[in-house]
């Protein structure tokens, strides 16, 4: 870990109230990220990745959602205890977020410029010409061609990649110390994905910013992340340096995810069929006691179905699995 954690999440629980009772979508999530570090959060849809990100900024839709337990320490301050005005001061200013859907994440009835200026006015008090100049600088920083002209355009006049760049420009407006990118490239073309990743890496390097990259793409993790947290069923099941986790995965779920990545280096004739993890992510309503992955796990043993294994940590590599005995934390 690169020094003091910038953000550390401890035992975060989020519950949703629904017709079928209360569902725990996050069940004791703990992770941390340091300044200048990239933490990748990986997992299938429904594993709680996005919910973790929303909970950090306290943007979980309430009702029906509720953060029921845990701590979110940002530079030592517990955001879950912070007042609403304090939280507003942090959002978009100290911690920014970009989302999966660039097509719908910008307000269609305001110009791109107006939406960036809004953040600048809100947090930095920039108005009029000053705000305009700064916005155009930001648009140029994210490599938007003809930035002066784009400033006055509406989101529908831009492509998906351009809109995601606008989102990044907006997120960068106040030079945040932490950026949460929730599947920033999922909706984009492969070539555009690479450009967005390059851009994020460059900005992070220049600003020494912490970055949480949420993705279901192991390739993106390998390329971008210093450390990785694997999530399943609202829990972090494995966490460690990217090298460690990718080369020596401990949890059967992580192994499964890595096996699912198609290998393009093999000759066409020698490629084997794509691997998949049998079954689907359990619905949050169906979570039983025990390990949430037990039903899909081919290594499952009796205790897996009755109680959740505690974290085992060795050399900064953390795993929660009954098949990995050791000194339990």
């Amino acid at each position: 870990m690169a020094g003091e954690p910038l953000l550390s999440v401890e035992g975060l629980c989020v519950e949703f109230k629904g017709a079928r009772g209360i569902a725990r979508v996050l069940n004791g999530v703990s992770l941390s990220v340091a300044a200048g570090e990239t933490l990748g959060i990986v997992g299938e849809s429904g594993s709680g990745k996005s919910m973790t990100a929303l909970a950090v900024l306290r943007l979980v839709p309430d009702p029906p959602g509720r953060i029921s337990a845990g701590r979110v320490l940002f530079r030592g301050e517990d955001l879950l205890q912070a007042s609403t005005p304090r939280m507003r001061d942090i959002r978009g200013n100290k911690i920014s977020m970009i989302f999966q859907e660039p097509m719908t994440s910008l307000n269609p009835v305001f110009t791109v410029g107006a939406q960036i200026c809004e953040t600048l006015t809100l947090h930095l008090g920039l108005r009029g010409e000053a705000a305009r100049r700064r916005s155009i600088e930001l648009l140029k920083d994210v490599r938007i061609p003809a930035a002066e002209q784009r400033f006055d355009e509406y989101p529908h006049q831009l492509s998906g990649g351009m809109r995601q760049r606008v989102m990044i420009a907006m997120a960068m407006a106040c030079e945040p110390s932490l950026l949460i990118a929730d599947e920033p490239t999922t909706a984009l073309d492969v070539t555009v994905q690479a450009q967005i990743f390059d851009l994020l890496r460059e900005i992070q390097k220049a600003r020494g910013m912490g970055l949480i990259l949420i993705t279901h793409d192991m390739g993106a993790i390998a390329e971008m992340a210093d450390r990785v947290a694997v999530m399943y069923g609202g829990r972090v099941v494995e966490e460690g340096t990217t090298r460690d986790v990718l080369d020596h995965p401990q949890h059967p779920y992580t192994k499964g995810l890595i096996a699912c990545v198609p290998d393009l280096d093999q000759e066409v004739g020698e490629r084997h069929a794509l691997t998949e993890i049998p079954g689907v992510v359990p619905s949050v309503w169906d979570l039983q006691q025990g390990c949430p992955f037990a039903d899909r796990c081919d290594e499952a043993i009796a205790p897996c179905r009755t109680s959740m294994p505690a974290d085992v940590v060795s050399n900064g590599h953390r795993v929660a699995c009954w098949q990995r005995p050791g000194e339990r934390a």
């Binding site: 978009g92 719908t104 307000n107 809100l122």
Partner: peptide, 25 residues
């Protein structure tokens, strides 16, 4: 809508989110 989440993530007050970003649409 997603852009309402964006507006909240910017740190806008609920009143602004409501009367500016939501009502305008």
């Amino acid at each position: 809508a997603d852009y309402i989440r964006t507006a909240r993530a910017k740190g806008l007050a609920e009143r602004t989110v409501f009367f500016k970003h939501a009502l305008r649409n």
